[in-house]
Design a binder for these strands. Structure first.
Length: 585
RNA sequence: GCACCCGUAGCUCAAUUGGAUAGAGCAUCUGACUACGAAUCAGAAGGUUUCAGGUUCAACUCCUGACGGGUGCACCA
């Protein structure tokens, strides 16, 4: 059963069009239209089908209008402009759908027709360092996408592909051997490791010999050297415990945490197979994948086109000349593992925009390898500071995630203290946690992920505008009404008197459609926009439509239904963004 | 140099993927609280969508070319 009027209408038009005009190709689609002068939904099917069908748009539109003249849910459709057809639902249809929605435990979210087994690869911090602000977007976006895809009926597997095996560990090992201190490590593991890592990293910039030594330590680790292996185990255990605390705080969950190290044994096999299949070859001592000339040079991820049109190789290296393996090698092994062991049909990687080339090459290589898996790179922009450069502390260091979360809670707490000075401290702390972290998560997802965004505490924690506190407050208002009036009786008859009640109803009925739109191109900001509009309509409804003092019982019941549904949808929507709600604030 | 991304109100962003008069929020100005919670609402003002061409019945959206910004370009992840 579906409660989406829009979805139903689209199905009806589609059916009609394919029955009467099977050659019309792409078929119709329907647009919600906010402007009352044009009705509520429109289709431009007649416009786009004209060329194929050799009819004028007006004639075609008229046929569509005739076909829907007596539809029980619709007022007679109207042709507008050069060939748009506008549909308006009868109020009874909306009332009926609203009643159905109020009894639907899934709030109108319908499952996809063909569920897939989808793996989400996100967060993936480098465990040689503490988690910092650079990890937050992947972590939050990934979790939200996992929740949404799961709700739509997909079988979702989440995997945290920890960076626990790369050159950074060569540097940490080298640092520890030169200046490590067991006591310092025990006292504050991360601080100590990070100091060692940083000092080596700094030195490699001016001293190539150090870099070579670090690479050698990595190679020894990869080849199973007992000393390096034991040290590595110690480091990893300490790091993982620390990272886990952050995930618990942020309510992030992984089905698997298979770091790069997990695939170590598979790497030689991958390289051998790539060589045997002729996908990779030796070059300057390294093993790399080169262009197979099947793509036009401009779209070939293994080529760079020079000024005059000459091409230069941009190889995808899978084994270094010293024999060590890389990120790409591990990624290939990971894909194979996910296919053969986890039986995944589609993999989604949530990372920084800077890794686009890497994934283009990786995906192209995988395709040549003959791996039947749909691969998607969901990338996002950088978080900028007030100076429009990548955000960092005053000293120019990356901001630690833990400190960022602390500050979010702290700031939310201060605002709460100001607004509600009489609240018990314990309760206040709990609310500040939900609101502070919610604000942080919301700001991260409220805008198109492809854009860099400017980090701004005041904007994020503002209680108006497109922010988490505004949404949570709308939810709190719905709860406050229901506490005073009791739950709605449910069932028909319902009545919608005020225009804003109709608007709010239409918006609530579109919740399921919104989640589907989000997964189309993995854009959670569409859900943010939807929830913001829903909350704004509710506040408007709240000002205009008294619930407790409604004139009739039917009206009161209807308004309680709207309040409860709004609360449910807001709570569900926020949950899908990884954000919690509170009963009062 | 080449590739990818971006350029929309003073600021931060939308625009259902080519649809009707480009929408919000901040900030500014004007109004509404002995409250179903003012953490809210109503209203005003703010635009040659960086520029120049082209395709189309229709362009912020697609194509070409400028200009401006970000990112990445062989053994890092």
């Amino acid at each position: 059963m579906t409660t989406s009027l829009l979805f139903q209408l689209e199905q009806k038009i589609q059916l009609w069009a394919t029955n009467h005009y099977p050659e019309s190709g792409k078929g119709p689609w329907v647009n919600p239209c906010q402007d009352e002068r044009y009705g509520h939904f429109q289709t431009n099917w007649a416009m786009v089908s004209t060329k194929v069908l050799k009819l004028s748009p007006k004639e075609l539109a008229q046929k569509l209008v005739d076909a829907f003249q007596t539809d029980p849910d619709l007022l007679p459709p109207v042709i507008a402009g050069p060939g748009f057809v506008n549909f308006t639902f009868k109020k009874e249809a909306i009332l009926h759908a609203l009643d159905t929605l109020s009894q639907d435990p899934h709030f109108g979210i319908r499952c996809v027709n063909q569920p897939q087994r989808i793996l989400l690869d996100f967060s993936s911090p480098n465990v040689a360092k503490q988690m910092h602000v650079g990890h937050i977007r992947s972590t939050i976006l990934g979790e939200s996408l996992a929740r949404i895809l799961k709700s739509l009926g997909h079988h979702v597997v989440t995997d945290n592909h920890l960076g626990d095996w790369g050159t950074q560990f060569g540097m940490v090992l080298l640092g520890y051997k030169r200046a490590g201190n067991e006591e310092a490590l025990k006292a504050d593991p991360f601080a100590h490791l990070e100091t060692l890592y940083k000092s080596v990293q700094e030195e490699t910039k001016t001293n190539e010999a150090i870099l070579i030594q670090a690479r050698h330590e990595l190679l020894k680790l990869q080849q199973g050297d007992p000393e390096n292996r034991a040290l590595w185990e110690t480091f990893i255990t300490l790091s993982k415990a620390d990272i886990q605390r952050i995930y618990e705080r942020l309510d992030i969950h992984f089905d698997y945490t298979l770091g790069e190290s997990f695939y170590n044994n598979l790497l030689p096999l991958v390289v051998r197979e790539m060589k045997e299949k002729g996908i990779a070859r030796e070059s300057e001592g390294a093993i790399a994948v080169f262009s197979d000339q099947t793509l036009p040079p401009k779209h070939d991820p293994f080529l760079v086109v020079e000024k005059g049109g000459a091409t230069k190789d941009a190889p995808f290296i899978i084994q270094k000349s010293d024999g060590a393996y890389l990120y790409g090698t591990t990624d290939l092994a990971t894909i194979k593992y996910r296919l053969e062991t986890l039986h995944v049909e589609q993999s989604i990687y949530v990372t920084d925009s800077r890794q686009q080339q890497h994934f283009n090459q990786l995906f192209a290589t995988t395709k040549r390898w003959g791996i039947p898996m749909e691969l998607e790179h969901v990338w996002f922009g950088t978080i900028l500071g007030p100076d429009k450069t990548p955000i960092k502390t005053r000293e120019g260091k990356p901001i630690k995630l833990k400190e960022l979360l602390d500050e979010a809670e702290q700031r939310a707490g201060n605002i709460l203290l100001e607004k509600r000075p009489n609240m018990e401290p314990e309760k206040q702390k709990a609310i500040a946690r939900v609101v502070g972290l919610g604000a942080l998560k919301y700001a991260d997802q409220a805008q198109n992920r492809n854009l860099d965004y400017v980090f701004d505490w005041d904007k994020m924690l503002a209680f108006d505008g497109n922010t988490a506190p505004y949404l949570i407050n709308a939810y709190v208002r719905t709860r406050s009404i229901l506490r005073k009036a009791g739950l709605p009786l449910g069932g028909l008859p319902l009545s919608l008197e005020h225009e804003v009640e109709l608007e709010l109803s239409r918006k609530l009925l579109a919740y399921g459609d919104c989640l589907h739109a989000v997964t189309q191109e993995y854009r959670p900001h569409l859900l943010c926009t939807y929830l913001f509009e829903t909350a704004a309509l509710f506040h408007k409804f709240f000002e205009n439509c008294p619930v407790l003092r409604a004139e009739t019982d039917t009206l009161k019941n209807s308004r309680l239904v709207l309040s409860q549904l709004t609360g449910d949808v807001l709570k569900s929507g926020l949950w899908h963004l990884g954000i919690g709600t509170v009963e009062e604030m």
